[in-house]
Amino acid sequence: MAAGGDHGSPDSYRSPLASRYASPEMCFVFSDRYKFRTWRQLWLWLAEAEQTLGLPITDEQIQEMKSNLENIDFKMAAEEEKRLRHDVMAHVHTFGHCCPKAAGIIHLGATSCYVGDNTDLIILRNALDLLLPKLARVISRLADFAKERASLPTLGFTHFQPAQLTTVGKRCCLWIQDLCMDLQNLKRVRDDLRFRGVKGTTGTQASFLQLFEGDDHKVEQLDKMVTEKAGFKRAFIITGQTYTRKVDIEVLSVLASLGASVHKICTDIRLLANLKEMEEPFEKQQIGSSAMPYKRNPMRSERCCSLARHLMTLVMDPLQTASVQWFERTLDDSANRRICLAEAFLTADTILNTLQNISEGLVVYPKVIERRIRQELPFMATENIIMAMVKAGGSRQDCHEKIRVLSQQAASVVKQEGGDNDLIERIQVDAYFSPIHSQLDHLLDPSSFTGRASQQVQRFLEEEVYPLLKPYESVMKVKAELCL
């Protein structure tokens, strides 16, 4: 049975990233139509530049190519590739079939990587351009969430054990800070992308030097003109047959890092959902379990974690691919890159769409948070109580021993009897502590235990987050809708 299948058929496997999760716009960027249309555009740009620099290419040939950029006979191309065992030459023939007058000058002087690699770089750039505003929107939604809850005390956790208090907004800023680093890295790697350009079979530009009869300047002009037509500021000066596969490492490393950030955020949300302090959106008709109707599973956060793990592992592909590119190139890269580049971007696209949807509907339960604080705060307040007693004339050592005994009794009630923490009640009825009984409410005010959390939130948002989001103001209103 021949390899390949009808990918629109229910009898043929289709990647869930495309069929179930990723956005239509990201799927289109990695589609065959987008790819092969870009090949034709690159052939047109090459012909236009070659004509401008004096090669015998007519206006009629150029116009014929322009008129057929979208006229792609995919069936013919597939048949040609089956016959020739070469995808680029299959599309040269297919393009030439609908451009008979231009057929002889299509791909003039070029090698397969002229269309293959340059198209990949265009796709990487455009895919990054799709991700950047999506990530900015996630940051914006979380920034709104953090600002609104900047002063809401909550129990902090280290080692997932109760620690000092923080605020809900401050905790959210930990998430935002990681995503801001990801946004900066995505922008950097996007701006650092260079075009492969017009380089020939081993990167020496020998074929173009021959076409222009040894004119170095025209060869350099050709490279520059096509690079500018493709919208790049610069091209690699040095290439082998391909652009260095280190570029793929750079791009997928940034995406993998984004995956790590999203995994951490969504894990926190899942843990908070278990504590009943916070939940992701839950639709009115949504079913959490087929057997347990009360369940409210954090399905979206779980999906993000599941896909983020996949995204983090994909960076190993370009690392290994770059390491086995012998001399000017081997074909070890080809099949692998067809999979890992598309999957990385479709996965990143999915987790950003999902995280935006989550961040637009996060639900906080202040009463649950308050109750958990009441359970733990008495123990945390013991040092403040000791200091207040010393100020009232008591002995630190005597007070410490009193607190120690009462704390152990209260802990026994919590752990052995399943009761509430009654340390404060014990202190309130103990005559030894009568000098500070009137101060206990103040000493137990949760806001006095959150330090500068709310001020940190305000400063972080104003100095770091809002300036970073400013270039994306025009796209901030787009909502994230999930079908599944």
Rank of each mutant, 00 (worst) to 15 (best):
K229E: 03
L142E: 04
S334T: 07
F232N: 02
E81V: 01
I62N: 06
N297F: 01
E462G: 12
T239D: 07
Q428A: 13
P446W: 01
M389H: 12
D430Y: 04
I106N: 05
F282P: 03
N357E: 03
S290Q: 01
G288P: 00
R37V: 08
S290L: 03
D223S: 03
G5F: 11
K264A: 09
I427M: 10
R374Q: 10
K101H: 03
D422W: 15
H263Y: 05
M476A: 13
A342T: 12
P281K: 14
H97K: 14
G259T: 00
A453K: 03
A47Y: 06
L258G: 06
R270H: 14
D349N: 07
S151G: 09
N384Y: 06
L406D: 08
P100Q: 06
Y243D: 06
T204G: 13
G104K: 13
T242Y: 02
R374E: 04
P281S: 07
D349H: 07
R396E: 05
D332P: 03
R309D: 06
K391V: 10
H310D: 03
I249F: 02
H442L: 12
T201S: 06
E376L: 02
G96K: 05
K218T: 12
S306D: 01
F212C: 11
E220C: 08
E383D: 06
Q320N: 07
I436R: 03
S9P: 13
G156L: 01
S395Q: 12
T201F: 01
R85N: 03
S140F: 12
R149N: 05
Y243N: 10
G288H: 11
E464H: 00
E213H: 09
I287M: 09
K477Q: 10
Q285M: 15
L271S: 06
R83H: 04
I238G: 06
V413M: 14
L135P: 06
E64C: 04
M299A: 13
P24D: 08
I106V: 13
L193T: 09
D129I: 15
C27Y: 09
L131K: 10
E213N: 06
I176Q: 06
E48Q: 08
S407H: 08
V324Q: 09
K295H: 09
A18L: 07
S140Y: 15
R83C: 09
E213K: 13
G361D: 08
K284C: 05
K75Q: 12
K295W: 01
T52V: 06
N71S: 07
E25T: 15
A411N: 13
Y21Q: 10
E250P: 15
L211Q: 15
T227S: 07
H437N: 09
Y365L: 06
C180S: 11
R404L: 07
S140L: 12
I358V: 06
S23Q: 10
Q177V: 14
R329M: 00
D317T: 08
L423M: 13
A344L: 00
N336Y: 03
C172V: 14
A127F: 10
W45P: 06
V324G: 07
L255H: 13
Q164E: 03
T354I: 13
E302C: 06
K199E: 00
G200E: 03
L314F: 13
E464P: 14
R37M: 14
A103R: 12
K224W: 08
D11E: 10
T244A: 11
L252Q: 08
N126L: 06
I403F: 09
K75Y: 03
G418D: 01
E417C: 14
Q41M: 14
L362R: 02
V262D: 07
N126S: 15
